[in-house]
Amino acid sequence: MRRHLCLAMAVLSMLTLPAAAQDLKPFVAGSMKEITAARQGKPFILGMWSLTCTHCREDLALLSSLVKKHPDLDLVLVATDTPEEGEEIGTTLRQSGLGGAQAWVFADPFAERLRFEIDPKWHGELPRTYLYDPSHKTLAFSGKLDGLQLEQWLKKYYTRR
């Protein structure tokens, strides 16, 4: 029953998103499994961010520069804001040069449940970034990203052979 209610809320939230934000997916219970299942055996970066987070904007700029250097980089961005802010989220991603990244927005009023699904050790600090290797072993970072550390990870998994 609870799962059906979450699904209904997600569908309803998508129906109320402005047209410019329709490419945002609602992040609800089960979304993390969907994200990882779609990337079985592949590395990717999961970036958690918010419109109200100053360091998040800096991380978006860094991630944008990395996507330009590594066009095959699989980047998933999850805004911890609400679906009602979808238009602003979409605009921010486009202005950051990340309009092509897969984008999600928290669509469950119980953000704690969603955070726990992503990482039981995550308490909501932002920005939060996860580097998934091909076996989906993760490295997690809270706070501002280290560009050198990211470049080293990218060389390992995204160097053209």
Score class of each variant (00 low, 15 high):
residue 108 D to N: 15
residue 110 F to N: 15
residue 91 T to C: 07
residue 139 L to G: 07
residue 28 V to H: 07
residue 32 M to T: 01
residue 35 I to V: 15
residue 102 Q to D: 15
residue 156 K to Y: 09
residue 89 I to F: 03
residue 72 D to N: 14
residue 22 Q to A: 14
residue 74 D to E: 03
residue 149 Q to V: 13
residue 130 Y to S: 03
residue 20 A to C: 11
residue 45 I to L: 09
residue 88 E to V: 15
residue 145 L to N: 06
residue 93 L to D: 05
residue 102 Q to W: 05
residue 86 G to A: 08
residue 42 K to M: 12
residue 143 G to H: 05
residue 155 K to I: 06
residue 79 A to K: 09
residue 1 M to D: 12
residue 124 G to R: 06
residue 131 L to V: 07
residue 72 D to P: 08
residue 11 V to M: 09
residue 102 Q to E: 15
residue 119 D to F: 02
residue 86 G to K: 10
residue 52 T to R: 10
residue 131 L to T: 04
residue 160 R to E: 11
residue 106 F to W: 13
residue 158 Y to N: 06
residue 70 H to T: 01
residue 80 T to S: 12
residue 12 L to S: 10
residue 81 D to N: 15
residue 137 K to P: 03
residue 41 G to D: 02
residue 150 L to H: 07
residue 131 L to Q: 07
residue 152 Q to P: 04
residue 82 T to A: 10
residue 91 T to W: 03
residue 21 A to V: 08
residue 103 A to T: 03
residue 58 E to H: 14
residue 112 E to V: 07
residue 70 H to G: 08
residue 123 H to Q: 13
residue 45 I to D: 00
residue 54 T to Y: 10
residue 145 L to H: 06
residue 36 T to M: 03
residue 99 G to V: 04
residue 111 A to K: 15
residue 107 A to I: 05
residue 125 E to R: 12
residue 137 K to G: 04
residue 59 D to P: 11
residue 56 C to M: 02
residue 119 D to H: 01
residue 98 L to C: 11
residue 143 G to Q: 04
residue 9 M to G: 00
residue 13 S to M: 08
residue 13 S to V: 08
residue 58 E to S: 14
residue 97 G to Q: 05
residue 48 M to E: 02
residue 139 L to N: 04
residue 54 T to E: 13
residue 64 S to H: 13
residue 123 H to G: 12
residue 3 R to M: 08
residue 136 H to N: 07
residue 110 F to V: 04
residue 77 L to A: 12
residue 25 K to I: 08
residue 75 L to T: 06
residue 18 P to G: 14
residue 37 A to T: 05
residue 133 D to P: 04
residue 43 P to D: 00
residue 69 K to Y: 03
residue 97 G to A: 06
residue 140 A to P: 00
residue 35 I to N: 07
residue 47 G to V: 01
residue 151 E to H: 09
residue 54 T to N: 12
residue 142 S to E: 15
residue 103 A to H: 03
residue 157 Y to K: 12
residue 60 L to I: 01
residue 69 K to F: 04
residue 101 A to R: 05
residue 109 P to M: 06
residue 69 K to A: 03
residue 18 P to D: 14
residue 51 L to E: 00
residue 29 A to W: 05
residue 53 C to S: 15
residue 105 V to G: 11
residue 68 K to E: 13
residue 129 T to G: 00
residue 146 D to Y: 05
residue 21 A to F: 10
residue 58 E to R: 14
residue 21 A to C: 09
residue 55 H to R: 04
residue 91 T to L: 11
residue 37 A to R: 02
residue 32 M to N: 03
residue 100 G to K: 12
residue 138 T to R: 04
residue 108 D to P: 15
residue 41 G to C: 01
residue 13 S to W: 08
residue 126 L to V: 02
residue 48 M to C: 00
residue 136 H to V: 06
residue 79 A to P: 09
residue 19 A to W: 05
residue 156 K to H: 15
residue 150 L to E: 03
residue 17 L to N: 10
residue 115 R to W: 09
residue 52 T to W: 00
residue 76 V to Y: 11
residue 60 L to N: 02
residue 26 P to H: 11
residue 11 V to Q: 11
residue 87 E to M: 12
residue 21 A to L: 09
residue 64 S to T: 07
residue 22 Q to K: 15
residue 109 P to F: 08
residue 118 I to L: 14
residue 52 T to L: 02
residue 9 M to Y: 05
residue 63 L to N: 01
residue 124 G to Q: 03
residue 62 L to I: 01
residue 103 A to V: 07
residue 147 G to L: 06
residue 152 Q to N: 13
residue 155 K to H: 14
